[in-house]
Amino acid sequence: MLFSFKGIDHVQLAAPKGSEEEAIKFFADVLGFKEIEKPAELKKRGGVWFTFGTSQLHIGIEEPFQAAKKAHPAFEVQNLEELKRHLAANHVKFIDDPNLPGANRIYLSDPFGNRIELLEWD
């Protein structure tokens, strides 16, 4: 094979029109992702971009909007128990899921109803 995949550059989640500030409050202020500037040509489409680790999360505006209830990104975290306490303190509801052997994981929804998985491997 003359090609190979190197990793994930970014994950995109959809959000409704005008939701950029709410996205910043959740992904930057609560989850701790760092907001990054979108290229000038793409700014007119709306949305907001974040970086974490070596990847990016793009929140794209979609009209009409429909949240992803099953399809989801899974973010690997360090110290999930501390993150769970942080989420609870910020009134973010989550569901523990013990069904993946070797992983401590939870599911939550972003402010727009998109499903997100957070997990820490043993």
Rank of each mutant, 00 (worst) to 15 (best):
residue 6 K to G: 11
residue 8 I to H: 11
residue 11 V to E: 05
residue 12 Q to Y: 02
residue 12 Q to H: 04
residue 14 A to H: 03
residue 17 K to E: 02
residue 18 G to P: 05
residue 19 S to F: 00
residue 19 S to A: 14
residue 21 E to Y: 04
residue 21 E to L: 11
residue 21 E to G: 11
residue 27 F to N: 05
residue 28 A to H: 11
residue 35 E to Q: 14
residue 35 E to W: 01
residue 36 I to H: 06
residue 36 I to Q: 05
residue 42 L to P: 00
residue 48 V to I: 10
residue 56 Q to G: 06
residue 58 H to W: 04
residue 59 I to C: 01
residue 60 G to F: 01
residue 61 I to L: 01
residue 63 E to S: 10
residue 63 E to H: 01
residue 64 P to N: 07
residue 69 K to T: 13
residue 70 K to G: 08
residue 78 Q to H: 11
residue 78 Q to N: 13
residue 79 N to R: 14
residue 80 L to A: 15
residue 81 E to D: 15
residue 81 E to Q: 14
residue 85 R to T: 12
residue 86 H to F: 09
residue 86 H to K: 14
residue 87 L to K: 13
residue 92 V to W: 12
residue 93 K to N: 12
residue 94 F to P: 04
residue 94 F to Q: 09
residue 94 F to G: 10
residue 95 I to R: 12
residue 97 D to M: 06
residue 97 D to R: 13
residue 97 D to G: 02
residue 99 N to P: 04
residue 100 L to K: 08
residue 101 P to M: 08
residue 103 A to T: 06
residue 105 R to D: 05
residue 109 S to Y: 08
residue 113 G to A: 03
residue 113 G to L: 04
residue 113 G to F: 01
residue 116 I to E: 03
residue 118 L to A: 11
residue 119 L to P: 05
residue 120 E to L: 09
residue 122 D to S: 06
